[in-house]
Amino acid sequence: MMRLISRAGPLLALAVLIGAWHIAVSRGWLGNPFVLPGPGAVARRAGDLWSDESLPRDLRTTLGRVLAAFALALAAGTIAGLAMGRSTTARAALRPIVGLGFPAPKIAMFPALVILLGLGTASKVALGFAEAVFPIAAAVAAAASRVPERLTWSAESMGASRSAVAFRVVLPSALPGLLAGARVGLIGAIIGVYVGEMVVSSDGLGHAMVAGWRQLDTAQLYVSVVAVSVLGFVLDGLLLLARRRLMRWAPENASG
């Protein structure tokens, strides 16, 4: 029963949120409905945008960019993290770079990225990548350096090669940390891509939002915000699902 409630928690919260939004708008507490249309009006606008193909197109564009940024960050972050966790030389070389990159506000680089990579997809993917790669690399490095020595020793004494130890012992052992970093990185990739699209773009959900604002089509603005949030929620859910499958061996695979 408790488990059912905690499963249903976000849905319940969603219902409460939408209800509160509806009441606040219909009572006029938040100003007029032009500035903040009610959930019904936003849903109707979403239906229009869906049937005239613009919402599916924007979703596809943004989703593609997010997945590209995330996949690149996952690959680069994992390799860099494994290297940092297992080799003192790689650690010495990469630590200052990750240390500099992690807390630096990557968004400030966006105009520079646009200059370098142009107005199209590349600059958005680059910003999403930059937001995602550091949490992943840092999490993998921390997890890889915490792999129990006895575990790698056991594998070595069984005759495992260096790469077998790295990919078949250290990587699975660091998987919980990797997946935790990946969750943070995924949201970073979404925010990077979306904000990039908002600042300079001609397509994608972020562009749709700014266009809604400029063209005084506020319902479209909210459709875009809701759409990107749903996108994030679904992708995050998929990642949690993957974690549950990958970590069936852990004593509590739902924690963390």
Binding site: A13, I190, V195, T218, V225, G232, F233, L235
Partner: peptide, 22 residues
């Protein structure tokens, strides 16, 4: 907690525009 879970994937910076409007 469910409310925070719901807000977690929302790009909060983007809310600056609707906030400005309201």
């Amino acid at each position: 907690e469910p409310l925070l879970a719901l807000l977690y994937p929302v790009p909060k910076v983007a809310l600056v525009i609707p906030l400005l409007l309201v």
